[in-house]
Simulated assay, not measured.
Amino acid sequence: MRNKASASTRSNQTYLNVLRKICADAKARGVYKGRKATIDPEKIRKMKAGGIGPSAIAKALKIGRASVYRALGS
């Protein structure tokens, strides 16, 4: 049973390594750019500076609270 689990783990690691290489190559060529940003970090910072809390900002912008914290941290 251990051999099957070990082989499966190796197979998954090999797949992930190949996938990372493909993505890195595509990014280097400028083909893979990721998803366009849908959240304006500057708007979040202005709301926070205006005294609005992260939960209220998230509700107002219809985004997750974690996204608000991520935008404030960057």
Rank of each mutant, 00 (worst) to 15 (best):
T14Y: 09
K59I: 02
K43W: 07
N17R: 11
N12F: 06
I44K: 06
K59T: 11
S11D: 10
S74R: 11
A7P: 01
A60L: 13
R70E: 09
C23A: 12
K48T: 10
T38R: 14
A58S: 12
L19R: 15
I63T: 01
N17H: 06
P41C: 13
S74F: 11
A56D: 15
G64E: 05
R65V: 07
K43Q: 15
Y15T: 12
A26Q: 04
G34Q: 07
C23R: 14
N3W: 15
Q13G: 03
S6I: 11
K48D: 11
G30R: 03
K36N: 05
A66T: 12
R45I: 02
A49S: 13
K59W: 03
V31R: 05
Y32T: 01
A28T: 02
Y32V: 00
A24H: 10
L61F: 09
R20H: 12
V31C: 03
I63H: 00
L19Y: 11
T14C: 04
I22F: 12
T14G: 04
K46T: 13
M47S: 07
T38S: 14
T38D: 08
R20G: 15
P41M: 10
A60H: 13
I44G: 04
R20L: 09
D25S: 11
N17D: 14
K4D: 04
A37V: 09
S55Q: 13
K48V: 06
